[in-house]
């Protein structure tokens, strides 16, 4: 998949309470969750996002709770992929399970500036900053994650397995 959109940068250790505060966890609807995406970071943060924009995150993104509502809120806000320095482990699993690909790039993320136009090819792992010309190559996805993404997320993956049984 190729994604192209405006980069929205957030800092280090952005936790799941920042991504979607617990008081909004009374629904599982991605659109509704998306309306409050990053409300724990800054009120109305999400108003800057246009559909197709890309989240660029600092170290340990998604730390904290196991709420799957966090990747759902990001997807619901219209951001289809996240580039990050590193990700907390429960968030990492959840994102792929929900069909939200994550690109773990370490310090290379510094090359991307807030507001830049970026292009991502998840198949090759190539990330290009179209505004400043920087290019980042992300290590390939673990096989287990690729399998899940190929099935359209974990729901599809398990469905296949249950049908085989």
């Amino acid at each position: 998949m190729i994604y192209k959109g405006k980069a929205h940068k957030v800092g280090e250790h952005v936790d799941t309470d920042a991504i979607i505060p617990a008081r909004f966890l009374v629904t599982a609807d991605p659109e509704k969750l998306g309306e409050n995406c990053m409300a724990g970071l800054e009120p109305d943060w999400v108003s800057r996002v246009n559909k197709g924009d890309i989240l660029v995150a600092g170290r340990n993104f998604g730390c904290g709770s196991s709420r799957e509502h966090a990747p759902l809120a990001i997807l619901g806000a219209g951001m289809p992929v996240v580039v990050g320095h590193s990700f907390a482990r429960i968030f990492y699993r959840n994102a792929f399970n929900m069909g939200l690909p994550l690109m773990e790039v370490g310090d290379a993320m510094d090359a991307i500036n807030d507001g830049d136009e970026i292009e991502i090819d998840t198949a090759t792992g190539r990330i290009r900053d179209l505004t400043n010309g920087a290019e980042i190559v992300c290590p390939p996805l673990p096989e287990s994650m690729s399998k899940i993404l190929e099935s359209g997320g974990l729901v599809g993956y398990v469905k296949q397995r249950l049908e085989e049984k």
Binding site: S65, S66, I90, N97, M98, G153, L162
Partner: peptide, 18 residues
């Protein structure tokens, strides 16, 4: 260990997890 809801759903169905 903690996981998200969909990993939990898979384990509820299969009795297994990776």
């Amino acid at each position: 260990t903690g996981m998200g809801s969909t990993d939990i759903a898979a384990a509820m169905a299969l009795g297994e997890t990776w």
